[in-house]
């Protein structure tokens, strides 16, 4: 079971919402039409001008949510899916704050709230099936398969029709790459995609600071102890000298 990917060809999406409907069915979510991602809509097709953009968890290669969760409630499976363990979650919502794609949603009106998002239909793909949304797609706008094959296919599509597609696979390099890939006939920034994310995996940024902790503790601890030792020694010496003076005084007086 290797790494998987979902490839979304924006030029082929007609906005039929079949993926969103199938997703709700698969995940037993309330059957209401939603236009934005929510705790009860793991994928939606958004209208952006004359284009349709399907949104879902990007399933990052180096996921921010996995790295920021203090209790490790997020995991990345070997298939590449990011899954959430609601039994660990304490509800700090750092995953939502940190996600560069603003995907995780919260059950704000619950007293036992959970973070909700697409799970890439992990149970289905582990048994060799494909995600419900991809299966429901009738135009071939969403495809599912081996990660490298999908990437290859995206490159091939751009190469075959360079006049049609922009030369950018969104998700190939963004924040270290994602398991959801997009190709499009208009530049991604015009479709509301965040194109300022850079190629560096975001967890590297916090690791830069976190990895310094052992040296801060060691150097800091030693330094503080050293300073105390010196100032304390000075105090002792001063006291000792004073005692000697007193003794001298006393012996003179005697």
């Amino acid at each position: 079971m290797g790494k998987k990917a979902i490839l979304i060809d924006i030029t082929k999406c007609v906005g039929c919402q079949q993926c969103a409907i199938a997703c709700k069915e698969e995940n037993n979510l309330p059957d209401i039409e939603e236009t934005k991602l929510s705790a009860t809509a793991y994928t939606v097709v958004e209208e952006r001008g004359d284009h349709y953009v399907r949104r879902l968890c990007m399933h990052c290669n180096e996921p921010t949510c996995v790295s920021v969760c203090p209790v490790g409630a997020f995991d990345k499976t070997p298939e590449g899916a990011i899954i959430y363990n609601e039994n660990k979650c304490i509800g700090c919502r750092y995953c939502m704050m940190a996600c560069p794609f603003q995907v995780p949603r919260y059950e704000w009106n619950s007293t036992t709230p959970r973070v909700q998002k697409c799970r890439m239909c992990i149970e289905r793909i582990q048994t060799g099936d494909i995600p419900a949304c991809v299966q429901a797609c009738e135009t071939g706008a969403s495809q599912f398969g081996d990660y490298y094959q999908m990437l290859q296919q995206a490159h091939q599509a751009i190469k075959n029709e360079p006049d049609k597609y922009v030369n950018h696979i969104y998700g190939e390099k963004e924040v270290g790459g994602t398991s959801v890939l997009y190709i499009s006939d208009v530049p991604f920034e015009k479709l509301g995609f965040k194109t300022n994310l850079g190629t560096m995996p975001l967890p590297d940024l916090t690791w830069e600071a976190l990895s310094k902790i052992p040296s801060v503790v060691l150097v800091g601890g030693t330094l503080l102890y050293g300073i105390w030792w010196i100032t304390n020694r000075r105090k002792e010496v001063a006291e000792f000298e004073r005692k000697i003076k007193e003794q001298e005084k006393e012996s003179k007086e005697d």
Binding site: P70, V71, K88
Partner: peptide, 14 residues
């Protein structure tokens, strides 16, 4: 949970 479920890569854990 933070006491027993560790994730040292998280700033929030620190």
């Amino acid at each position: 949970h933070a006491i027993i479920m560790w994730n040292p890569r998280s700033v929030m854990f620190e």
